[in-house]
């Protein structure tokens, strides 16, 4: 499973008027309502054939976006991956390549 990410609440409805805003800058915890990856220029792409499921990428990903819950392999959460490339650099099998997304 993802490291610390709460489940995204797609049910979140933005407040329509002032009466729907909370008093105080407060909101029930555990809501992630927006994706956060817009500054990524290169995306890591995993070659499942080369991956040995050693999970060094999962361990070192600073944003905890390598999911391990999928049966049969790892999955990268592109909604939150910032494209830092650490996973690709650290992968001993060279199973992750960085693909330019800015083109």
């Amino acid at each position: 499973m993802a490291m610390n990410y709460p489940v995204r609440q797609r049910s979140f409805k933005p407040p329509k008027d002032l009466a729907e805003y909370p008093v105080g800058i407060a909101f029930p915890a555990g809501h992630l309502v927006e994706t956060n990856a817009s500054w990524r220029s290169h995306r890591p792409v995993l070659d499942a054939g080369k991956c040995t499921n050693c999970r060094i990428c999962w361990l070192l990903c600073p944003d905890g976006v390598i999911h391990t819950s999928k049966p049969g392999g790892l999955e990268i959460d592109y909604d939150y991956c910032k494209g830092c490339g650490i996973c690709a650099k650290e992968c001993r099998q060279k199973a992750i390549r960085m693909e330019n997304e800015a083109l």
């Binding site: 105080g24 800058i25 407060a26 909101f27 029930p28 915890a29 555990g30």
Partner: peptide
């Protein structure tokens, strides 16, 4: 009992 995120960005 009612976990909240406080003093966040808007």
């Amino acid at each position: 009992d009612h976990p909240m995120s406080l003093a966040f960005t808007a």
